[in-house]
Amino acid sequence: MEERRGEIRAAYTASTITVYQAYSPEIGLPAVREGRFPAAWKRDRMTWIKPSFRWMMYRCGWATKVDQETVLAVEITRDGFESALRGACLSSYVPGVHPDRATWRRQLKRAPTRIQWDPERDLRLQPLPYRSLQLGLSGEAARLYADEWTVGIRDVTPLAHEIHALVRDGALGPASRLLPREEPYPAAPGLLTHLRP
């Protein structure tokens, strides 16, 4: 099957979008309790957010990998999310998107955010024929994410464990029904033009 271009599929409302991250309990549990990232969360490091729950499960091994045992659903403003997209650069050089490699390097160095399109995953964490967005935030963008864009943080680790148990038992139908409902994100015309291979 031919691979489709990257698309943003997410759970969203009129004003927010849900993204996922996985942390150690030392970071994740205080974030849930306080509804914001604690001081121990390093605002000067690049952090990657993922609108796809299944891709997050692939990345954290259903919340079993070391320092990724706590999976957070982070609700952020759509305004913040879209401003991050507008300022982003692809994390790798793509002919046809960038005029040349040197221009891409300059753009990447200046951009506060970067984009990767990685194969979306099914419930067995096998690749699907379309790509899912990963959004890297650094510098001021990471600080804005943690301190201004975030409007709520939920612990979805129990959900990850429940779905994983069903998948292990071969109960893909019930597992699928528990997944967060993710729909194509209504990106404004031109918002992703500079970010699609």
Rank of each mutant, 00 (worst) to 15 (best):
A40W: 01
W41P: 05
W41Y: 14
R43G: 10
R43W: 06
M46W: 13
M46V: 11
T47Y: 07
T47N: 11
T47K: 12
T47V: 08
W48A: 05
K50M: 05
P51M: 05
P51V: 03
F53E: 03
F53I: 09
W55R: 04
M56F: 00
M57A: 14
M57L: 14
M57V: 12
Y58V: 04
Y58D: 13
Y58K: 11
Y58H: 15
Y58I: 04
R59K: 03
C60L: 09
G61A: 09
W62N: 06
W62S: 06
W62D: 07
A63F: 06
T64V: 14
K65R: 14
V66G: 12
V66E: 15
V66H: 15
D67Y: 07
D67S: 10
E69T: 15
V71C: 15
V71K: 12
L72G: 15
L72M: 15
V74K: 07
V74Q: 06
E75T: 15
E75G: 10
T77E: 10
R78A: 02
D79W: 00
G80Y: 09
G80M: 12
F81N: 02
E82M: 06
E82I: 10
E82L: 11
S83L: 02
S83K: 05
A84N: 06
L85Q: 00
R86Y: 11
R86N: 11
R86D: 13
A88K: 02
L90H: 01
S91G: 12
S91V: 04
S91R: 08
V94A: 12
P95A: 01
P95W: 02
P95F: 03
G96I: 12
G96D: 13
G96R: 13
G96E: 12
H98C: 08
D100I: 08
R101I: 03
R101S: 04
R101M: 03
T103G: 04
T103H: 10
R105D: 00
R105A: 01
Q107P: 04
L108H: 09
L108A: 10
K109F: 02
R110M: 05
R110T: 01
A111I: 08
I115A: 00
I115F: 00
Q116A: 13
W117C: 11
E120V: 05
R121K: 14
Q126E: 10
Q126G: 03
Q126N: 06
P127L: 11
L128M: 13
L128V: 07
L128T: 05
L128R: 13
P129Q: 05
P129T: 04
Y130H: 15
R131H: 14
R131W: 12
S132K: 01
L133G: 01
L133P: 00
Q134T: 04
L135H: 00
G136M: 01
G136I: 03
L137F: 03
L137V: 01
L137I: 00
G139R: 04
A141K: 02
A141W: 11
A141Q: 05
A142D: 08
R143Y: 04
R143H: 08
Y145P: 05
A146C: 09
A146W: 09
D147I: 06
D147N: 09
D147P: 07
D147R: 10
D147G: 08
W149N: 10
T150G: 10
V151G: 05
G152K: 14
I153R: 01
R154Y: 01
R154A: 15
D155G: 13
V156F: 02
V156T: 02
T157D: 06
P158V: 15
A160D: 03
H161Q: 12
H161G: 08
H164T: 02
L166D: 06
L166T: 11
